[in-house]
Amino acid sequence: MVNGVSHPVVCKPFDTLLTVLREDLGYFGTKFGCGIGYCGACTVLIDGKSAHSCCLIATTMSDRKISTIESCDDDPVIQKIQDQFLKEGAIQCGYCIPGIVMTVRGLIEESGQRVITEEILRGHLDGNICRCSGYASIVRASLKACVDE
């Protein structure tokens, strides 16, 4: 189930979730970065939790709820994060951004009522590399989005 829609897929048995999302289902918003779970460009949410989709085998995910960046149309929280990223100028080349937005979305989901401090936020972003921004504007924008929630 991706973004609320069930997709029957025939794929190679060991294809990663990332490969299937991009190549079989056309969710190109989920980016291929390092392919080994270090850069976070491929971050999606599985049942609300952030995950590197390059480190999951697609066929083991068939009964899970997967959200990609494309779910933003129906998710006001993601939109709020995106708006803050735009306002803060946190987007440069943008390749890491969908993954980072999803990581922040996962953090907000997971935190519930708890306050998200800068330290918690940075710790949460440690699975995502951004090579353009030095993370500064990303942290500023994300904190604003978290406070709003």
Partner: peptide, 27 residues
């Protein structure tokens, strides 16, 4: 056997592990 796969899947992607069958415990 594959549980979370966080070590095994990158190893498969890098060609460091080449199993024939993955027995998924998540069900």
């Amino acid at each position: 056997v594959i549980a979370g796969g966080q070590s095994l899947v990158p190893m498969i992607s890098l060609g460091l592990s080449e199993p024939d069958f993955l027995i998924n415990l998540s069900s």
